[in-house]
Amino acid sequence: MTAETPKIAKLDAEGLSLKSVSLWQITWRRLFKRKSAILGMVILGILVFVALTAQWLAPYPPTLSMLDANPPQNLDKRSAPCIHLFGCPADQPQHILGTDGNIRDEFSRLLYGSRLSLMVGLATVSFAIAIGTVLGALSGYFGGWVDNIIMRVMDVLLAFPSLLLAIAIVTVLGPGLINALLAIGIVSIPSYARVVRASVLSVREMDYVSATRALGGNTNQILFRRILPNALTPLIVQGTLGIATAILDAAALSFLGLGAQPPTPEWGSMLGAERNQVFTAPHLVFYPGLAIMLTVLSFNLLGDGLRDALDPRLAHVS
């Protein structure tokens, strides 16, 4: 009896016990073993919190000029940050990050900007994943001329440097946040289509797919129930990293004046509007850029962490 106990314990350690552990539980556990992934999640958590509570955290509405505040504040344009704790005279109104070119509170605008940034990332990537998945699945499942046509179109999209194609699309559609999102979404379709196509190709001929077909499953069932779930993990990784790129590209378009239009508190356009003032009011350039960088960094760290955590080749690590 005593001789058998360690054997059972060993089986447990190898994950062979009856209690099943799902892929997501394993992934979650592995994710928490990586310091960089934790850092990414912490930054992202703070961002989501700020985005959800911006209206309570922000001292002023994001588009309110301080001249119209109650009581009106007679401040200069682009006044330097004033924090009472750090010795700013108490008779001056407190603006943690100063005010911008239209005498609006930079800190409030920055807080509200987190909403747009997250929205931009999620919206473009969901759009691109939805279309990319359909195209990639059709391409991989049917093969032949369907595959040829779809993948050649994707090749053409990939032949343009992505930011440039987005610029060309927005120039035609006209500037604006929605058009910028559409442009970035279109530009990022090919990478998802390729990921899904590759997964579909790898499982299309598997026995369990043939079994479903033999049991009378229709194309829908085979594609959506049997094949596509296999593409989920690479899509999650690609999507998380894709959000980072989408946020960067959207900020770049807004910086060029093609994305969000003033007075929208969008980080890229806030930075773009004040870029000529970098020598006189560097805080108006520094903080929006820092915010973009931290947001992008959090998705990059999380994406890298997820890629490692979901990689079955690294199974022995956990």
């Binding site: 960067l248 770049a252 930075l271 960088m293 992008v296 990059n300």
Partner: peptide, 11 residues
């Protein structure tokens, strides 16, 4: 890889 190139340039 996370820095916007225009921000880095201005800084």
């Amino acid at each position: 890889v996370s820095m916007p190139v225009f921000w880095l340039g201005l800084m």
